[in-house]
């Protein structure tokens, strides 16, 4: 248990190093991209370059990705600050988002599925 916790915390620390490096770099170079995305790119490059081994971060990384919804919870509760949305127009807005999200997913999935099948038919087997 103690061993597991230490592994988890030290792996989290490594990921944080990349996160803060990304935030710092984005700030210094005033990039139009969030620091977390810069951190992602830095970590990816380090993995490819062999500077960071997958085993060093895999446990904590897996946890972060598995519990992603938890990290959205406070923002979702933040809707409380927009009580004015809880009216007729708010309902309409949710409806708009529902329809639009449906169309977006359908269009994206449809395009990908069609291209995928064409590629397979074209003889480029997996």
């Amino acid at each position: 248990m103690v061993r597991k916790t230490i592994t988890m915390l030290s792996q989290l620390a490594i990921i944080h190093v990349f996160y803060f490096a990304g935030v710092g770099l984005a700030h210094i170079l005033s990039l139009p991209v969030p620091g977390s995305i810069v951190g992602l790119v830095l970590l990816l490059l380090s993995l490819f370059a062999g500077i960071v081994k997958l085993e060093w971060i895999e446990k904590a990384g897996g946890w972060l990705l598995a519990e992603l919804l938890l990290f959205f919870v406070p923002s979702a509760v933040g809707i409380l600050n927009y009580k004015e949305i809880l009216n007729w127009q708010g309902l309409e807005t949710v409806l708009l988002i529902l329809i639009s999200t449906f169309i977006v997913m359908a269009a994206t999935g449809f395009t990908a599925e069609k291209l995928y099948r064409r590629k397979r038919k074209g003889g480029h087997t997996q």
């Binding site: 990921i15 490819f48 990705l65 959205f72 406070p74």
Partner: peptide
């Protein structure tokens, strides 16, 4: 609501490192 936002800020913060962790499946 602002007190709750403060009290749960550790979880909100984790969105950053979680985004970084997306490098793992890509790699």
């Amino acid at each position: 609501p602002s007190d709750y936002a403060l009290s749960s800020s550790l979880w909100t913060h984790m969105l950053g490192p979680a985004t970084v962790a997306f490098a793992i499946p890509i790699y």
